[in-house]
Design a protein around this nucleic acid. Sequence first.
DNA 1: GTGAAAGCGCTAACAC
DNA 2: GTGTTAGCGCTTTCAC
Lengths: 344, 344
Amino acid sequence: MPKPTIDDVARLAGVSPKTVSRVVNREPNVRAATRERVQQAIAELSYHPNQFARNLASHRSRLIALIYDDPSAYEVPSSGYILRLQQGTLKACRDASYELLIHPCRYNSRQVVDELRTLIAQVRPAGIILAAPLSNMPKIVASIEASGTPLVRLSPGSEIPGHRVVATNDREISAEMTRYLASLGHHRIAFIKGHRQHKAVGLRYLGYLDGLRGAGLERADELVVAGDNSVGSGERCAEQLLQLPHPPTAIFAANDDMAAGVLRVAARNEVKVPEELSVAGCDDISLARQIHPMLTTIRQPLVTMAERAAWSIIDGAVDDGPGGGMEIVAGTIQYRESTGPAPD
Amino acid sequence: MPKPTIDDVARLAGVSPKTVSRVVNREPNVRAATRERVQQAIAELSYHPNQFARNLASHRSRLIALIYDDPSAYEVPSSGYILRLQQGTLKACRDASYELLIHPCRYNSRQVVDELRTLIAQVRPAGIILAAPLSNMPKIVASIEASGTPLVRLSPGSEIPGHRVVATNDREISAEMTRYLASLGHHRIAFIKGHRQHKAVGLRYLGYLDGLRGAGLERADELVVAGDNSVGSGERCAEQLLQLPHPPTAIFAANDDMAAGVLRVAARNEVKVPEELSVAGCDDISLARQIHPMLTTIRQPLVTMAERAAWSIIDGAVDDGPGGGMEIVAGTIQYRESTGPAPD
DNA sequence: GTGAAAGCGCTAACAC
DNA sequence: GTGTTAGCGCTTTCAC
């Protein structure tokens, strides 16, 4: 037997197809009794609206596209970030009966813009969630905006008036971490900067400087080194820092992967953590609790951020939304095993 | 200006809409000259076919749904597995200009079947890739089959005639790992079993037994313990094994997360790896190379498996495919730092 | 090889 | 509150 259509339901309930449509879409202006009858008919036929027809008629889908930097482009992908992004988006999707489409792409590839244009033309998602560092690349943002698809950007370093953004308090919380390390007696606190294109990660460096200042400490040039967010770069930076004539007693890395690299170098060189060296990270990826010692880090509320972004799209689809504004979700420090009092 | 439709292209090229459709869909029976003219018109208008209309008319979409056990249900999700699954599927999708929809769900939830039914009714994906352990749950498999959606199962423990399956040589390669450990002089090789529902992981235990036999070693009851695939369970199992009056000199875990748990316990108890204890895992998740010492493990060709599964759907969509058969992608042992000669 | 006609199953816009 | 009419932009079927 063929799948029941809206007409079958309408016939059974003794109403017009449009009324069934109203019930299915939870529109107002339907008498309770009518609604009831329609719902019964729907249940009886176990009717599921055909999304294809819905999409075609309404020019929109119930798909959210999550776009992020393609991890397969790197040797050791940073998996926690992506998974938590997905997790938050999925949570909202489940509750709103949307589905999630994922589309990683290389931020530096020549064809990103074309690729996204095609994606939008083909799928017409209800909205796009764009993760950092893609979220602060003007060309990419502009091309999505041009298509008219609702866009929410995650942790971009900079705001654009009228654009929706969900971010965290990167700078403030990084300052707090730095002050915490200082309060443990550390005077030489090193910082490993992240990916240059990732502006939000750049804010962490500013937070580090704020924290240093707040603790009455001087910034030392040789204690600030730059990685690229990968574990490998964390290792290289750590080696450089530990070979200094006057090495740091604490290293604060702009993300957990790099902090994990620091820990690996410490283990190789038999530098005890946290007795001889304190290490702190950022993000609280699951790796942070899987390594030994467990990493003190900043829990970036990525899951919540992604969830808020998805809701912003879902809600926007209903009332054509605010279209602008910035939402801040605060991060928190997770005090664990990799930090302790400075050695004498 | 409104988006160009197939009619616009047809008018510009001086052909009928149907001919344009043929060109777009790479159907035969179009003269080269006509095809050329149509393609020019398409380029000129920068025409993109509207998927919604296509879907509605053809009753199918260019979406592949990847379904796996919901990691957010666990404390410490095993991220590598999922990410590699996605990576392989995405690769095929990119090449075939399909898009990927992800839909994790809890394998033991009451509503899985309903949830999947709804997903299928709403999205009508071109096909579904079902990962282990969901791939060997009869109810779930049956409900997808009933919908008529092409299904490819990944690493199910058991075959069903006429169903498409992509698997790896779990049993053979686990036997090889066991023989390798034996060849290093280990006589007491422990095994940590995985998730009971995950049949492919169960095959690894059989491989362990094969390997023991192949090396002329006896199976000892106290050396076989059961975890649940999580890091935490690996820790619990390791503690149990190391407290044995006559502890093992090698521990082979049915997955990397549990092996990582073993490594953590060893570090805490200052048991040197690999000098005093050899540890081997399965899967080669990215964590395996991030921890210290780097884990000797079996590289499960998950990325390739997922890619093959996706192609099977994509190709099947063209010629209504074979509809059955099993494809085996072989795993390989990654020899790294966590295994070494048995202590005297 | 190519085209004409007839939907796919729903929603938008409006009438009642 | 509810129904009517007219598409949405393709593909299908079948005729030529």
